[in-house]
Design a protein around this nucleic acid. Structure first.
Lengths: 409, 409
DNA sequence: GATAGATAATTAAATTAATTAATTTAGTTC
DNA sequence: GAACTAAATTAATTAATTTAATTATCTATC
């Protein structure tokens, strides 16, 4: 039990105050020194002193003068967001997507590359490097200074060491991603699981802004959750928190790829929806999907959604059923963790009301009243770069945190 | 969004270091100043200085000299555990049980009183006061100094304000428990939900010692969990985290008292086991239980356990089934939260292997491999006063935490 | 438009509580 | 008993905050 004891020292105190002021400027800016002092309960001279260092680092700038109500006009401070950028990489099952983003989450560049089937470690890392390199090459250093790189990877990730322990869709193990990328580009790198990155992205720039407890549930090929508790991403004892795809909601339900029965993933994932559609077609149900299938289309979750939008009854029914079952899963989460918000993202969230309405109904019926009253269920609005934006925030979080905040230059 | 910004100050720094040293002495004591300095990375003079204050407060004492390997023998320090006591109260559905405990969890006194059916607020608070008063009256102030009171209450509790928001079994709402008891006894009081208190008790004195992430699952009349994450009790957005009794594991399962189907509580709680037993008897199954029922016994979960111990096949089967289903619920928890331990307490835990073996099997089958490898499942060993010991730790936790540590005299 | 009042920001001195370096205490070893 | 070791303390130093005073700049008003 190699325990870590937290102790105070002058250095830590300063570092904490510096990071606190930086975050106040980020969250409440433009803001004056006097206002910062009021909010943080630090004294004006301390604020002046620390703000001085932040100005020197270039991260914070003085902008216009603020309004006064009878006195000297305050000098407003803000983060020089547009000047500095961070690279965010989403390494999924089939492709690596990258963005370059300013500190306030504006995407200024993006790019992607396909991953070949079953790549070896070097090939995969090469693709990662390539996507990053292209982004850097397109950057004018006079306009944008790249501060670091965040990487969100599917599968099991050790974020402390920056290692991809297991990436099932690539069949790779123990990739030293952080080490490799840091060596290649001489920039600080943060790595974590993709869905956790997504949740962090929501907390910085999305529907999780200002919330201490929320859960981001991503429903696509699988079902995963990024769990954000007490103002921090929750990792679990061995970095697997949020792997809720194989939680059981129906012990006598359909068989799942994992060998068990009634896993959430076996009922609400894209492939599961497609499977139910195929079964219905086989049973002879009348549906647009049958026609489309005959004309060569492959049945997928997305196709079911398109059919539903055209008014296909079976498809609407399938999506409604999906909403109900997902609602059961979310109600379980709500009863267990009592979050103040659940953010639904991924394929299912695009289906909108067709899924969400039955979902909300089920949640209301199946969760403890006071937990249900405390929670709101929304869909992600971060758009197509959501995962990569999440990756960016992996780095931002580190950068704006006590230990990291001091070391920007 | 009235945000709290954490800032450093001299006072905070000192308070943090003081509490850190206090906790090191508590956890690793008897320990010398030099060893404390090594462990905490504080310098020897700082340790000497702070230890001086702790000695003055009386909470810490110098004991024997330690062994030396060629130099001055270290003066060992330890908490004067036996000198100071805390009162712990468990307010359940039918009775209020109280203990007086030393700082190291030794129970020196205990007592209890029954709660009448549907008491009014004054009656209930009167019983609470009465149990506490009797404990205090039995205490010789020359031997034991009472430092404070912890109260674990069933139902929904706001631990920050010390209010019982809703106690379903007493049908009471918005009881200002902390205020009432503090006024009566002029001692600091901490209040929280009973199962959360239990989890905290496990973290201090039980199976959760030294663990950062574990969950204490109490299965009795209902099913509740105390969730301990990242070294702290997790409360949730509105203090209802851990209310997992009504999480769904079988959407098409038996009807629950809450109106839904397949809630965990409707399958594995004591009453649910009894119900299944009665159904089996009604179906004409041959069993000891049928004989006992005829001779006037009421079928309860406990009775089923007693029958199983006598070799009754139906009862063994019922308990095995309970283990399987509870295993599904725990597997869901494990997949979602990736704890390093689950501590099972309450009635079911007494049934031992009859429940636990099928439970372990189910957990192994239904949870993600790396999460399953990270977790151990054990039963609580705190004994009959477990809940009250948990209540004691509600106060201890506060007392040994930065803000509180300084204010003991 | 001069002046009082108000608010913002800075400067200088005082204070706090840590750290560094040296010293004392109390042993062990050869 | 001289040399060595380790623990604990003391004294001096240092870093960062806080207090108090000062300067800067704007508004309001007579």
């Amino acid at each position: 039990m190699a325990q870590e004891f937290e102790t105070g020292s002058f250095h830590r105190m300063k570092s904490l105050n510096k990071s606190t002021i930086l975050n106040v400027i980020r969250l409440q800016g433009p803001i004056s020194r006097a206002e910062i002092a009021k909010l943080t309960k630090l004294t004006p001279p301390t604020v002046t002193n620390i703000v001085g260092e932040l100005l020197e680092s270039g991260l914070v700038v003085e902008s216009e003068l603020g309004e006064s109500s009878g006195g000297r006009k305050p000098i407003m401070l803000r983060i020089d967001s547009a000047r500095y950028t961070v690279i965010g990489i989403y390494a999924g099952a089939k492709r690596v997507r990258g963005i370059m983003s300013t500190l306030d989450g504006q995407v200024v560049l993006h790019g992607e590359e396909r991953i070949p089937v079953e790549p070896d470690a070097q090939t995969f890392l090469g693709i990662l490097h390539s996507v990053i390199r292209k982004l850097i090459e397109q950057t004018d250093p006079a306009v944008h200074t790249v501060l670091g790189i965040g990487i969100g990877m599917h599968g099991l990730v050790d974020p402390h060491q920056g290692i991809s322990i297991f990436a099932p869709n690539l069949n790779l193990r123990n990739l030293h991603v952080k080490e490799s990328v840091e060596k290649e580009f001489a920039l600080p790198v943060e790595v974590d699981n993709d869905v956790r990155a997504l949740a962090l992205g929501e907390s910085w720039f999305g529907q999780g802004k200002g919330l201490a407890n929320f859960i981001c549930v991503n429903v696509g090929t699988g079902v995963g959750a990024g769990i954000y508790l007490e103002g921090k991403l929750f990792q679990g004892a061995s970095y697997t928190a949020g792997e809720m795809g194989h939680t059981t909601i129906d012990v006598h339900g359909p068989k799942c790829s994992c060998g068990n029965y009634g896993c959430l993933e076996a009922i609400v994932s894209g492939p599961a929806i497609a499977l139910r559609a195929k079964q219905a077609i086989a049973e002879g149900r009348e549906t647009l999907l049958a026609q489309w299938q005959e004309s060569g289309e492959t049945i997928t979750g997305e196709l079911v959604y398109r059919a539903a939008m055209r008014g296909d009854e079976l498809s609407k029914e399938l999506l409604a059923r999906t909403g109900e079952y997902l609602g059961v899963g979310l109600a379980n989460l709500i009863n267990t963790l009592n979050p103040s918000r659940i953010i639904v993202s991924g394929g299912v969230s695009k289906a909108g009301g067709l899924v969400l309405e039955p979902l909300q109904k089920t949640v209301a019926a199946r969760s403890l009243q006071s937990s249900a009253e405390a929670v709101t269920i929304v869909t992600s609005q971060l758009g197509e770069h959501a995962m990569a934006i999440g990756a960016v925030t992996l780095f931002l979080e580190k950068m704006f945190t006590p230990a990291g905040a001091a070391e920007i230059s």
